[in-house]
């Protein structure tokens, strides 16, 4: 026998199931007033610095059908590229939002401010992006992705430049559809 390792594996994930909104977005689930204050209602408060933007989109399954039961969380830096808790970060940016695909149309909307570039540990900066985490019935482990913006300089981004197939890069870039408005569709498969 060898020496035992002292670390233990992560708890395994399970799907969030069809009723994830009961626990994480009670008002959306039809139970308003469950909590005095729900988590992640908006990633920004009044007075946040930077450009206000709105991102709309849908999460599509392998048949092209938009999920009606997806729950998404976003996490982002402020307009200067600082995350909440870091020195000098904008106090009006909590950075975290929970939003759901509409139960009828399957479309989601994220209203926030556009984040600034974020320096990596090694100096090179990530282009402005918003991290997403997607859970739903049928998704056994939460899916991580990022929203980049087509009107930003994404050339040197360490993540995007790692992607060999350039068509896959386009799937991470939100398309501009108006002044401060973007569309970001998520295709789970196909």
């Amino acid at each position: 026998m060898v020496q035992p390792l002292s670390h233990q594996p992560e708890t395994p994930s399970q799907t969030a199931g069809p009723y994830v909104h009961i626990g994480l977005m009670p008002t959306y689930a039809g139970n308003p007033g469950y909590y005095d204050e729900e988590i992640g209602v908006s990633p920004v408060a009044e007075g946040a610095q930077g450009q206000v933007i709105e991102i709309v989109g849908s999460v599509y399954d392998g048949t092209g059908w938009a999920l009606r039961d997806a729950l998404i969380e976003s996490w982002q830096a402020d307009s200067a590229g600082l995350f909440p808790g870091q020195d000098g970060a904008d106090p009006a940016v909590s950075g975290h939002c929970r939003f759901a695909a509409d139960a009828v149309t399957g479309e989601f909307t994220l209203r926030t401010v556009k984040p600034g570039p974020v320096p990596s540990r090694y100096g090179r900066a990530f282009a402005p992006h918003i991290s997403l985490w997607i859970v739903a019935r049928g998704i056994n482990i939460g899916l991580q992705t990022r929203i980049y913006f087509e009107d930003e300089d994404n050339e040197g981004d360490p993540l995007l430049s790692r992607i060999e197939q350039r068509p896959r890069v386009n799937t991470l870039i939100a398309k501009k559809i108006g002044d401060g408005r973007y569309r970001f569709d998520i295709r789970l498969q196909g």
Binding site: W75, F83, P84, S94, H96, S120, R121, H129, R146
Partner: peptide
């Protein structure tokens, strides 16, 4: 990186 190593409180 910072996007994964920070989180909401």
């Amino acid at each position: 990186g910072p996007s994964e190593e920070t989180g909401p409180t």
